[in-house]
């Protein structure tokens, strides 16, 4: 695909071929640079946004859900999928309140996250602390990395 693009550039024939090679080199360098960029954010576009991290034993799923109470959340695991469903409520204020700004939104949400490895559904813990939900999902024994000692 990339090669084809190089040769259909309309200015190709008016330029010196060396210029074109130089441009190709720049593009390749850019591609390498892009591939190296760490933590590139790719959003699924579903509320809430999620950060997924892992260590040797667990997956950690974190989400920012300010104003949601623990009892309004429904968290389930099935196979390698974790689903988070809930509703964010914003209480009505007293009558006669005049709004200057209203940027916060209320509504329901439901999100499914596929975890990259096998998990142990018996060991899932969720905790909500100052608006941040943390779900710790234990990896299945078989999915944990094993240290192999060299004899």
């Amino acid at each position: 695909m990339i090669y084809r693009r190089f040769f259909t550039v309309p200015t190709f024939r008016f330029r010196h071929p060396i210029d074109e090679l130089y441009r190709m080199r720049q593009q390749l360098e850019q591609m390498v640079e892009d591939a190296k960029a760490p933590n590139q954010r790719v959003s699924a576009g579903v509320y809430p946004l999620i950060n997924l991290t892992e260590d040797k034993d667990n997956y950690y799923v974190r989400a920012e859900i300010p104003g949601v109470k623990g009892e309004e959340l429904d968290i389930q695991v099935a196979a390698n999928n974790l689903s988070i469903t809930g509703e964010r409520k914003i209480a009505m204020e007293e009558e006669g309140a005049k709004y200057h700004r209203k940027e916060r939104e209320a509504g329901s949400f439901s999100r499914m996250i596929g975890l990259p490895g096998d998990i142990n559904p018996e060991k899932v813990e969720a905790k909500l602390d100052s608006g941040i939900l943390t779900v710790v999902v234990s990896k299945a024994e078989a999915a944990k990395p094993k240290q192999i000692s060299v004899k």
């Binding site: 920012e64 100052s130 941040i132």
Partner: peptide
């Protein structure tokens, strides 16, 4: 932070979403 600001005759109230803040 996203905020709501409203006022009544007596006071101005501000609500701000600040997840993770202690």
């Amino acid at each position: 932070p996203a905020v709501d600001i409203f006022e009544t005759e007596k006071e101005i109230t501000l609500l701000a979403d600040m997840p993770g803040v202690k």
